[in-house]
């Protein structure tokens, strides 16, 4: 340390009555404190690099490769891959978005009253009912989806009941099914399976948000000339909004990439983008860059939709 610096240090030390030694010790502590956040962040950063940045790079770079299965693929920065996959499979991409949007809407329609009932009306049955909502998770996803094949089978009681109530012709009239006495292998059966599988993801965050609402606010609403419905719209809904946004995102995002339901409950006409990607990547399609390009496209699309949704949900508009 140079002489002037030493003098500075001494002056600094004298100014508030501490010794030079104390000051140095203090600086060491401060230096250690400055590095501490990085030490604590390190595991997270490493995790992010290994499991997010690297795979991201891998899939983005793969999406602009060219070649074939026999000779291998090389990074040639062929951005036209995106144009190719869009023109070839845009129908499936749009269908995936449609199905997941429908699934999210139906999940929300079912989850709002269900979460409301459990949070405010169920009393001591609250925990049991929540356990029942989560209960399907104790069985394998595939088995649960397969079960819907039996539930919606042509000779099952559900379809019989739907026939009796004239619901099946109605559905086929709307284009959700393809014949008057069968519902399997149609958009209807696929969305049914998706709604069933994703419902807990919608209910849980909404329930959590609603459960925190003070029931006296409902009384205050009613006291201030708001009917039960107006109280729900003006008090319960806005207060549950964070949960609603969370629940719909937790439903929509995985639903976009889901193809289990489409494969098991659907048919050739319900092919979704997940199936295409699977075929390109590891199946009969055999064009890995195309599969990667589709994945990137789907990811960016979902991200844009999600961001737009969150931005809108944050404002008064949605209420």
């Amino acid at each position: 340390m140079s002489a002037p610096a030493l003098a500075d240090e001494a002056a600094e030390a004298l100014a508030d009555g501490t010794t030079v030694a104390e000051l140095r010790a203090d600086k060491r502590v401060r230096r250690r404190r400055a590095t501490l956040p990085y030490v604590l962040l390190a595991p997270g950063i490493i995790w992010l690099v290994v499991f997010f940045i690297v795979p991201m790079w891998s899939i983005v770079s793969t999406s602009v490769e060219t070649g074939d299965m026999d000779t291998g693929f090389v990074l040639s920065w062929r951005w036209a891959n995106f144009g190719d996959v869009w023109s070839q499979w845009h129908q499936q991409i749009i269908r995936s978005l449609e199905y997941s949007l429908m699934c999210t809407v139906f999940c929300l329609i079912l989850a709002l009253p269900l979460a409301y009932f459990i949070a405010f009306k169920a009393g001591r049955w609250k925990n049991l009912l929540m356990a029942l909502v989560v209960a399907p998770f104790f069985t394998s996803y595939l088995i649960r989806t397969l079960a819907w094949k039996t539930i919606l089978a042509d000779d099952g009681w559900v379809v019989h009941a739907m026939n009796t109530l004239h619901i099946t012709p109605l559905l086929s009239g709307m284009g959700w099914t393809y014949s008057d006495n069968s519902v399997l292998q149609t958009p209807f059966s696929v969305v049914c399976g998706m709604v069933y599988n994703f419902l807990p993801f919608t209910v849980l965050p909404i329930y959590t948000a609603m459960e925190k609402i003070d029931p006296r606010l409902h009384e205050a609403g009613q006291d201030l000339y708001a009917s039960a419905w107006a109280t729900f719209r003006k008090v319960t809904f806005p207060l549950a909004l964070p949960g609603i946004v969370g629940g719909t995102l937790l439903t929509f995002i995985p639903a976009v990439g889901d193809y289990t339901n489409a494969v098991m409950l659907g048919g050739p006409k319900t092919k979704v983008i997940g199936t295409v990607i699977e075929q390109q990547m590891i199946g009969t399609g055999g064009n890995i860059p195309y599969g990667a390009a589709l994945s990137v496209l789907l990811m960016v699309g979902t991200l844009v939709i999600t961001l737009a949704y969150i931005k809108r949900a944050g404002t008064e508009e949605i209420v």
Binding site: R216, L217, E219, A220, D223, Y225, S227, V235, L239
Partner: peptide
């Protein structure tokens, strides 16, 4: 309650937090 010309000041106020 919402049809009565009566209003309440609640014990813990029950103000709408949002």
């Amino acid at each position: 309650p919402y049809k009565r010309p009566v209003n309440t000041v609640f014990q813990n106020y029950a103000l709408f937090p949002h």
